[in-house]
Amino acid sequence: MTSDLSVSATAYLHENEGQGIWFTPYVSPFSFGQGGPNVSPISVRTTEYDMNRAGALGSATWILGDHTIEGGFWYEYNDFNQDRRFYANTRAAPRPTLEFMRNPFATQWSYAYDFETTMFYIQDRWDVTDALTVSGGFKSVTVDMAVDTNIAGFVAPTSGSNADLDGTITSEDNFLPQIGFTYELADNSEIFGGYTENMRAFTLAPAASQTQSGFDFIKENTDPESSKTTEVGWRYRNGPFQGVAAAYYVKFEDRLLGLLRARASSATVGDQERRKRDDQGR
């Protein structure tokens, strides 16, 4: 390899587990055939999640005259689970409140999610003159979220029933462009501008507290939220003073709003415009 070409690769794992707990008198082990003379009527209700994700990032940069060309990718597989469980206590002593709860006597609901994220990008930074730099590129993003129901309403749902939510929802945009420039007016003064398109991939929301028919409806009738951002501004530095004055215009499309009716659902509520001018100095 020559000094004009450099490459970088990163691999990672991430495990994250958490439990929110509530010592509740409302759900008793005795209601689940788990009673006994030493069993407390108070159980621990958890809302718990367990995430295991693995990913890799790679990029290559090639300097060619006034151009710096970079391309890369990101891949991630995320195995995510969310559960509502109940754990018994004895009359003699409660479970330690700051330790993970294990060995539940009941599970109210349990959902398994898999997120697969694939992203590619390519960009070019062109130093047109000493003062002017122009950059441009695009990314392609795909996020597949698969959901599978383990438990709903304290039982494993009948396979193929409406309670047996099982499916995949995809967020995809293969061309999300970004262009920008900086122009140096003086050593301590610069103007900048840019235009960016972006997409927010679906998260758990389309599958949360859903039936198969609710999930299918959301999948059929909604699109991922997206945005188009234009901004221009001026940066200035003088001794201890740094300041920036910028204006931006964002056009959002397919904004999603969660609604609570007889059951939860998401609806596309249309487009939104946002304009603002920021002036700050410090």
Binding site: S8, E15, N16, G20, F23
Partner: peptide, 18 residues
């Protein structure tokens, strides 16, 4: 008692550059 009792996170990574 009620709490966000425990959250645990581990993130190992390795970076290779050439």
């Amino acid at each position: 008692d009620a709490s966000w009792a425990t959250r645990r996170s581990r993130l190992p990574a390795c970076l290779m550059t050439g």
